[in-house]
């Protein structure tokens, strides 16, 4: 099965290479009366099916790395290698797409031109957008293959999660928040699992919504020269694309504000692992489940995860 996945990835790479180079070749042949910006737009939109296909194949490969694991030193795997790589690729995409998108918008608003031609900003923006779309497709493929839903609030557990979130909020905000959402603060604080309540209630849903919004509106904008797009839809897409960009800038600030002080979590998205001490201190619910199954596995001489760990919220993601 592993070899089939690698063959699919290799085929995806070859097809993407052929697709992108033929789109670049067509645009650069001089046969069409296109300017630089329009040429790049066509290259981007024509290359997209190949990029998305490659994303699906790579997602299958990422799924091969899924599964709960505990190291001999007690460290617990929080993220699979696939997720670590996918997150890094997504970050690279945003690093390219976000500043260039911001400049396209602000430059237009402020009516300022840099000595660098504008089409170069668009070119880098399209490259960044392609990387984001590739990573997003890979994640969708990965999640559909693994069936992992640990980033979502499970059905029927919203009350528990809103209560847990209340205890994670600063005291000044906690009471108004509890009043607004009718959270009963006399209830005991639920133990934090693999992910904090803030991550499950705020972080992951907001990133998912913003990713969907920016990619769908971006695709409508980019596809307008290939397919007829009604003026109102185009105007709405452009407005929402800019709104999503600003929201992503804000969300990125919030993401850094939340993760930087929790350094072991930042380290875990580059290595996949969280040390046992931190897991016990900050994620007692998860450490208990993972530690319990790990102890059992160690007694049996095993080193990788079981379905039980996943069912109890102890899988990696």
């Amino acid at each position: 099965m592993r070899i089939v996945t690698w063959i699919l990835v290799a085929a995806g790479l070859v097809l993407a290479g052929v697709g992108v180079s033929s789109a670049v070749g067509q645009a650069g042949s001089g046969a069409q009366p296109w300017g630089n910006e329009l040429s790049d737009n066509f290259v981007f939109i024509k290359a997209l099916p190949f990029v998305l296909g490659l994303g699906v194949a790579v997602g299958l490969l990422m799924a091969r790395t899924y599964g709960a694991k505990v190291r001999s030193d007690g460290a617990i795997r929080r993220w699979s290698r696939g997720t670590v790589v996918g997150h890094a690729v997504l970050t690279l995409g945003f690093i390219l797409a976000l500043p260039t998108g911001m400049w396209q918008y602000l430059g237009g608003i402020l009516d300022v031109n840099l000595p660098i031609p504008l089409y170069l900003f668009y070119r880098v923006h399209y490259i960044g957008a392609s990387i984001v779309l590739f990573a997003a497709t890979a994640f969708v493929s990965y999640l559909s293959m693994t069936g992992d839903r640990s980033l979502l609030v499970p059905r029927g557990q919203w009350g528990r999660h809103l209560l847990g979130l209340a205890y994670e909020l600063p005291e000044k905000v906690r009471t108004p928040y509890a009043k607004l959402l009718r959270v009963d603060l006399t209830q005991p604080r639920p133990p934090t699992g693999q992910f904090t309540f803030y991550e499950r209630v705020v972080e992951f849903p907001s990133w998912s919504i913003l990713l969907v919004l920016i990619t769908v509106t971006g695709l409508i904008k980019a596809g307008r020269y290939l397919l007829p797009v009604p003026g109102t839809v185009l105007w709405l897409s452009s407005t929402l694309h800019v709104a999503a960009m600003v929201a992503i800038v804000v969300k990125l600030l919030d993401h850094l504000r939340y993760t930087l002080p929790r350094w072991p979590l930042v380290a875990s998205i580059t290595s996949g692992w969280v040390n046992e001490r931190y897991a016990r201190l900050r994620h007692p619910g998860w450490a208990q489940v993972s530690g319990g199954t790990a102890a059992g596995r160690r007694a049996n001489g095993e080193s990788s995860g079981s379905a039980a760990a996943g069912a109890l919220g102890g899988s990696d993601t």
């Binding site: 979130l165 994670e168 909020l169 600063p170 005291e171 904090t196 309540f197 803030y198 705020v202 600003v246 800038v249 804000v250 600030l253 919030d254 850094l256 504000r257 939340y258 930087l260 002080p261 929790r262 350094w263 900050r282």
Partner: peptide, 27 residues
């Protein structure tokens, strides 16, 4: 205003990190 507000929150957290090694337990 939103970008400025969240940038100030991040700056405050980073300043706290630089002056103290203790990680915050709140969201």
């Amino acid at each position: 205003v939103l970008i400025a507000g969240f940038a100030i929150l991040l700056a405050r957290e980073c300043a706290r990190m630089l002056t103290s090694a203790d990680a915050s337990g709140t969201a």
